[in-house]
């Protein structure tokens, strides 16, 4: 099964990290991110240490570093806000490259940027080594409310179907000579969005009918129940525990 049969964030591979059960990886990644967020922002070196830890996991998972780095781009829209902070924050100012910037703003920006990047890198790594379906099953095993898991699973299943529907609607629009040029055409786009919403809603009703017809009563059956060994848990715990040591050191040195 090549990459064409899975999602874009996943990279097929054979490694100990790939083989770990999804729920174990989820817990490890979540704890790691919690520890990173709890680190004092002044302990700049600690974030370097986190990056090294992640790089070690990348190595163990045999994922090419470029694969992770390219996917970090998806963070950009979220950190744009961080760039504004040094300009708008209050407090004493300092000169950086000829600009007078707020000191607390600079620390704030660094805080968002560093923790955000480490967090996104951990998530990208989790996604690169775990298939979507396994992630959903993992969430289910971690007792995430069944309804939320179902919603996520439908998003996965129908994302492409709806995107395809939108594409067909765009082609139909353009085939009749319409191209969106400026705000005067936003009305047409809004109506397209409305039509897509109604279509998706109606599809939801039909899918529900099909589910009820096959005995759905509100819960999804969990198909696999493979056990988890203590060795797997301890292997996965290595990352968050190492991070915790860095974090505690960071607090004691600040």
């Amino acid at each position: 099964m090549g990459a064409g049969h899975t999602h874009k964030l996943y990279r097929h591979g054979v490694s100990r990290v790939h083989r770990l059960p999804a729920h174990v990886k989820l817990v490890a990644a979540f704890c790691f991110v919690l520890v990173v967020v709890a680190t004092p922002r002044e302990a700049v070196w600690a974030f370097g240490a986190y990056a090294v830890l992640l790089a070690a996991v990348v190595g163990a998972a045999r994922v090419p570093p470029g694969f992770v780095l390219v996917r970090l781009v998806l963070e950009v829209p979220f950190v744009a806000f961080a760039v504004l902070l040094p300009f708008v924050a209050e407090g004493p100012r300092t000169e950086v490259l000829g600009l007078w910037l707020s000191e607390s703003g600079l620390w704030g920006a660094w805080n968002v940027l560093a923790k955000g990047t480490i967090g996104v890198a951990a998530s990208v790594l989790l996604a690169a080594t775990t298939e979507l379906r396994a992630l959903l099953l993992g969430l289910q095993r971690l007792r995430m409310p069944a309804l939320l898991v179902q919603i996520a699973s439908f998003m996965v299943r129908y994302g492409d179907v709806i995107a395809d529907e939108l594409r067909r609607m765009r082609i139909a629009r353009e085939s009749r000579g319409f191209t969106a040029r400026g705000p005067r055409h936003w009305g047409v786009l809004a109506r397209t969005a409305g039509a897509l919403f109604i279509r998706s809603y109606e599809r939801g009703e039909r899918v529900h009918l099909a589910m009820v017809s096959r005995g759905y009563t509100g819960t999804m059956p969990v198909a696999d129940r493979a056990g988890t060994t203590a060795a797997q848990w301890s292997y996965a715990a290595a990352l968050p525990l190492a991070a915790l040591a860095v974090c505690l050191l960071g607090w004691s040195l600040v």
Binding site: R203, A210, A223
Partner: peptide, 16 residues
């Protein structure tokens, strides 16, 4: 597409 709502063919056939 209304009938097949699970992430893989196997899961979907197993659903019922």
């Amino acid at each position: 597409d209304d009938q097949l709502f699970m992430p893989t063919v196997r899961d979907d056939v197993a659903f019922g």
